[in-house]
């Protein structure tokens, strides 16, 4: 394994000076990380499932919102922290303030959309061979009318051979960013999404940073976005980084990804280990809704055991976890009865 890694790294360094095509670098970086990009393709569009209200609410419950974590102190890029403001408040005022903040928190926790990859577009508008050789470079014409959506904006390119066609997605992004720049988005995607930089970020478990920046830099149907996000999710899944992403906006998307690709074993075992049986049950409900596989059983644990039988690929680990949970529940019950008898309630 190490030897393979070494060879691939060597390859990568050898490639670096010549490689001008991005796809090459991508392929190599994937090999380095031992993960391949898993994109949502058009044949099975996840959007209708993802935007379903039930599924959205399930994803939100699974996110397990901790207000303190969502609203923890973050650095805003200024050198010094600002002075806090203090207020005297009555019960009512405090209640109102908390309600207002909760609404704000909901906005912050909006799950980034999960959609299929975009279709390549290069609709040819006209071919004018008479214009061939008039210009040496391509000419781009942009409709910069105010208020038009970025995806709907008319941007066309005149090729040197006289063809007039719609621009491809990459150039559209570049032109949009040139004329209508959005803050924190760069014309060229930052290097942190590629190669060794990406690998090092993942190894340092900077998942939230990677995902946040991917959200600002790319559109959700961008292949690079889906590559970055899918590799990050796989890394989280393999390295048990669920707690890092919990109660952030990305946890819903992560769960959906895992459910969509039927690899919820790690998440399930984490939930059982931390004794969040209700959440594990919710996860199964989500699984049922996405894939139509139902699990029988009147109680939560029964359904989980049914899942382990039917679908799971890590049966041994999960069964051990369930057994440990059962023991724990039993001991807790014994303790409770003991306390009750000691108090003379029974």
């Amino acid at each position: 394994m190490a030897a393979l890694r070494h060879i691939s790294r060597k390859l990568f360094y050898n490639f670096k000076p010549e490689s001008k095509l991005k796809s090459e670098t991508c392929a190599i970086c994937i090999r380095l990380l031992n993960y391949s990009a898993i994109e949502y393709d058009e044949k099975h569009d996840p959007a209708p499932v993802f935007f379903n209200k039930d599924i959205q609410s399930l994803l939100k419950t699974l996110t397990r919102v901790d207000l303190a974590k969502v609203n923890r102190r973050r650095k805003l890029g200024t050198k010094k922290l600002e002075d806090p403001e203090y207020k005297f408040m009555t019960d009512e005022q405090l209640h109102q303030a908390i309600e207002k903040a909760k609404k704000n928190t909901e906005e912050l926790l909006q799950i980034p959309p999960v959609v299929a990859l975009r279709k390549p577009t290069s609709r040819v508008l006209s071919k004018d061979p008479a214009l061939q050789g008039l210009e040496k470079s391509r000419m781009v014409f942009t409709d910069i009318t105010f208020g038009v959506k970025d995806i709907e904006r008319l941007i066309v390119v005149r090729e040197p051979d006289g063809t007039l066609q719609e621009v491809d997605w990459e150039m559209r992004n570049r032109i949009n960013q040139t004329y209508f720049p959005s803050t924190d988005r760069y014309i060229k995607p930052p290097k942190m999404f590629f190669g060794e930089y990406f690998e090092s970020l993942l190894n340092r478990k900077e998942y939230e940073f990677v995902l946040d920046r991917a959200c600002t830099q790319f559109e959700p149907n961008d292949p690079t976005y889906q590559r970055v996000v899918s590799i990050t999710y796989q890394h989280v899944n393999d390295n048990d980084g669920f707690e890092i992403l919990r109660s952030t906006r990305h946890f819903g998307a992560l769960t959906f990804f895992l459910v969509w690709h039927k690899s919820i074993d790690n998440l399930m075992s984490e939930l059982i280990e931390t004794a969040h049986i209700e959440e594990a049950d919710k996860l199964l409900e989500l699984f049922t809704k996405v894939h139509g596989i139902s699990f029988e059983g009147s109680q939560e644990l029964d359904r989980i055991e049914d899942y382990i039988k039917k679908v799971s690929s890590k049966k041994a680990v999960l069964e051990l976890g369930v057994q440990a949970y059962k023991d724990l529940a039993k001991r807790r019950e014994e303790l409770d009865t003991g306390i009750e008898t000691a108090h003379g309630l029974r």
Binding site: V70, N71, R73, L76, E85, M89, T90, D91, A101, T105
Partner: peptide, 20 residues
């Protein structure tokens, strides 16, 4: 003394009311 809640608002924590 005031018989009121003392609440802290920090810009860095999204102005979330933090009851001191």
């Amino acid at each position: 003394e005031k018989k009121l809640h003392l609440v802290q608002f920090c810009k860095e924590s999204n102005n979330f009311p933090n009851v001191i």
